[in-house]
Design a protein around this nucleic acid. Structure first.
Length: 408
DNA sequence: TCTGGGGTCCTAGGACCC
DNA sequence: TCTGGGGTCCTAGGACCC
């Protein structure tokens, strides 16, 4: 190997390792009864489907489908249904990544269920062995099945992985260089399947007939730039074999941290909004503390049901100093929340987004620091806003009380 | 009456990702 | 009845400066 279909020399080998149906696979490790049965995992509030087993996909259950519209069908077909259990998934994700780290020094954890790795130093004739080893060891040690695609850049690694999954003979690992036939097939992939081309852009491209990878790379650069932005053009360049998106080996400093939730039911009381907002602040501060960062400003927002009365209001708050103190944050948030809240409206969601995050050892001095008037925290007793989780599995890996017990 | 040009910074909105 | 949450980045436009 060495050249791709367009005659460009290969210089790097980027792998994408992603967990198959990740949330479903996590549930199955601890609930083997679900293996072989159609299985889904639901979003917060048991709102919509966010993960599906192969069996569920065969029944036509779509990603993002509202649960209520398919609930009866799923019960009839004896589906296994789970509320999302992020404690479990986060922990399983760490375990998967740690196994992969034994095989490579260059890894970018791209999301909870996938990572990019650099295989450039692996000789061509050892690559497939190595990919198989990783896949087997993750399965053996963590119990999660993964797929691996490798190509000259991230976009082509993703495309390789996508196409391989659609191919029956595929056994979990696949290389861009495995055959010229394979590379030709990439040109027929629908444009909306390409990493970096989302719904809005693919709609526009489809209207003008640029509906496949092959047609997209034939487009004029300036047109692409005009219809999308610089990243759309980078996507074309990567499909042509250029290397535009390097692997981010270091953990990136977060720029914002959001803590928000939809309510379990509609809310039209200020006291309940306060309870919810205070709770989200507590959760957000916990995550700020874990990440060793401190905010100096935040945006709070209140919004209605986006499928009914789609109202939204927000306010940007600069704290009197950089702070992680819940009382201090609450006292400043409360004043603005009071102003934002409208008695006439019904709310479905609220939250806080912390901005201007600094590492906790760097203190930003504010010359005009003011004292704050402390506002009492709301009493947590109504909880109409609390989210629904009717199908929650246990914290098998992160709570001593819920560790699975094996009986002989 | 006529009303520059170039630069930075900030924000809102909209696209993308999982 | 019931429709997720948490991110990043780009661009346009306004404020402000000289």
């Amino acid at each position: 190997m060495g050249e791709n279909i367009l005659g460009i020399k290969k210089t790097v080998k980027i792998g994408i390792i992603d967990c198959n149906n990740f949330y479903v696979s996590c549930e199955r490790v601890f609930n083997p009864i679900s293996v072989g049965k159609p299985t889904v995992v639901l979003s917060n509030n048991d709102g919509c489907v966010i993960a599906r087993s192969q069996e569920a996909k065969k029944y036509g259950i779509k990603m993002g489908e509202p649960f209520f519209s398919k609930r009866e069908f799923m019960e009839q077909k004896d589906f296994c249904i789970y509320s999302s259990n992020y404690n479990l998934y986060g922990d399983m994700s760490d375990r998967v990544m740690n196994v992969i780290r034994k095989y490579t020094n260059t890894i970018e954890v791209y999301s909870i269920d996938e990572c990019f790795v650099d295989f450039s130093d692996t000789p061509d004739d050892e690559l497939e062995d190595k990919m198989n080893q990783i896949r087997d060891e993750v399965k053996r040690q963590v119990g999660i099945p993964v797929s691996i695609g490798v190509g000259p850049n991230k976009t082509l690694a993703k495309l390789t992985s996508y196409l391989a999954k659609k191919t029956i003979s595929y056994s979990g690992v696949c290389s861009y260089w495995s055959s010229k036939e394979f590379q030709k097939k990439l040109l027929d992939v629908k444009i909306d399947e390409v990493w970096g081309i989302g719904r809005k852009w693919s709609d526009k491209l489809n209207i003008y007939g640029y509906d496949t990878v092959g047609k997209f790379i034939g487009m004029d650069d300036n047109i692409i730039k005009k219809w999308t932005n610089i990243n759309g053009l980078k996507t074309k360049m990567e499909i042509l074999g250029m290397y535009c998106h390097p692997i981010e080996n270091k953990i990136k400093q977060k720029k914002v941290l959001a803590s928000t939730r939809s309510f379990g039911s509609d809310v039209n009381s200020f006291d309940q909004i306060c309870e919810a907002m205070h709770y989200y602040i507590e959760r957000g501060v916990k995550r700020l503390t874990d990440a060793h960062i401190t905010p100096s400003s935040a945006t709070i927002f209140l919004s209605g049901n986006r499928y009914k009365d789609n109202h939204h209001s927000s306010v940007y708050i600069t704290f009197n100093r950089q702070t992680k103190d819940i009382k201090e944050i609450w006292s400043q948030v409360y004043v603005h929340l009071r102003e934002l809240y409208d008695d006439e409206k019904v709310y479905k969601k609220c939250g806080i987004i912390f901005n201007k995050l600094f590492p906790e050892d760097i203190e930003q001095i504010n010359l005009f620091e003011q004292e704050f008037i402390e506002i009492e925290a709301p009493k947590n007793e109504i909880k109409m806003w609390a989210m629904r989780q009717d199908y929650l599995s246990k914290k098998y890996t992160s709570s001593w009380d819920e560790i699975p017990v094996i009986r002989f």
